[in-house]
Design a protein around this nucleic acid. Structure first.
Length: 335
DNA sequence: AACGGGGGCAACCGCCCCAAA
DNA sequence: GTTTGGGGCGGTTGCCCCCGT
């Protein structure tokens, strides 16, 4: 009864992935497509657990992942979404398709929590308005309350509302297949890692684990070839930082331009700049890539954003987050 | 130059849900 | 209907690197 036993745990390698393993995995996925991870170790000879293969692909190797510093816009998005959704990193990552949930989670734990706490402390020192939070930032408090179960109902309602919005968005997308694609949406959506996860976008990609055929059009996994080239570059340390020009590399360069943009963590120095919460501050940077901004504008003009997303990008809502006075329940009124 | 501490991040762990057998 | 494994997700760990002393 039940499924046949999967891979035996004996001899499964752990620890950091080597470039050779990365190349093998990328090559296999480039040929067969992601999914059916159980068969990956057996077919590739990798002495890795299927789950490890999947994580390595989704968190590091898959095309379209933007690495490097987070932009101000991304940071604000995370702040907004974390305040609304809590530590649902996968859901948050669905709105930042170029970032993995693991990256966002790490960034939150290592950067944003500290910044928020720092800002909260500074606010408390200047404004004693009767807040009873002593040790945790407002966002942390929300997170803690989510996890403590004292507001399970509110959390459940928020999740439900988010799921409703996601479903509405998915339905909207499904009903407007002939809608011109935003060029800045890039291949994440094409890869089946769209803004609402692999499964919800499968209507256009058919990237399902059960489908072992390669459903991806030519060029979809071209970025994987670029990944391989990058891996080879890292592997062959004789040629450091020598860019290999390629069409796909040029495509990815457009996406990863923002990663090379100056990070606020560098320029901000001490303190948590209040302007961080203001989208206007983005416009002050002249040479800052406006990739995501254009994407959002395009979505807004297309009317494909839900109320939640509109709120998310609404500048006024930033003030709500800033003040930390707005309860999540009152935020839900916006929906 | 050596050492210790902290930060950052990749990877693992454990749990849950759901589908397959 | 039950069992089992795959996939997804959030939390945690451990290693590596950087920086200050």
């Amino acid at each position: 009864m039940g499924r046949p036993p999967c891979c035996d745990k004996i001899g499964v390698k752990k620890g950091p992935w080597t470039p050779e393993e990365d190349i093998i995995l990328v090559s296999y996925i480039q040929e067969h497509g992601p999914g059916n991870w159980r068969s990956v170790p057996t077919h590739t000879g990798l002495r890795r657990c299927s789950k490890s293969c999947r994580l390595r692909w989704t968190n590091y190797l898959r095309p379209g992942i933007k690495r490097g510093n987070f932009t101000q816009h991304e940071e604000k998005m995370i702040l907004h979404l974390q305040a609304l959704l809590g530590n649902r990193w996968a859901a948050i990552a669905s709105y930042l398709p170029e970032r993995t949930d693991n990256d966002i989670k790490n960034y939150w734990n290592t950067h944003l929590k500290k910044k928020l706490k720092k800002m909260n402390d500074s606010c408390e020192s200047t404004i004693n308005n009767g807040f009873d939070n002593k040790d945790l930032s407002s966002s942390d408090k929300k997170t803690t309350s989510h996890q403590s179960g004292s507001s399970n109902k509110g959390q459940w309602e928020r999740r439900l509302q988010t799921d409703i919005n996601m479903a509405k968005q998915a339905l909207s997308d499904a009903l407007s297949l002939d809608k011109p694609q935003n060029p800045t949406s890039f291949s994440i959506t094409d890869l089946g890692y769209g803004p609402y996860g692999p499964s919800s976008s499968s209507s256009s990609t058919t990237t399902t684990p059960t489908s072992n055929t390669n459903p991806h059009p030519s060029g979809v996994y071209a970025s994987s070839a670029e990944n391989i080239a990058r891996l080879l570059q890292n592997f062959m340390k004789d040629t450091p930082k020598t860019e290999v020009p390629s069409p796909v590399a040029a495509t990815e360069m457009v996406i990863t331009t923002a990663a090379s943009s100056p990070s606020i963590t560098e320029g901000g120095g001490e303190g948590f700049d209040q302007s961080l919460f203001s989208f206007n501050s983005l416009d002050e940077a002249e040479d800052k890539p406006k990739l995501i901004d254009h994407d959002i504008d395009g979505l807004l003009t297309q009317g494909s954003l839900s109320l939640f997303e509109k709120w998310l990008f609404d500048e006024q809502s930033n003030d709500m987050i800033i003040n930390n006075n707005m309860s999540l329940e009152s935020q839900e009124v916006l929906f």
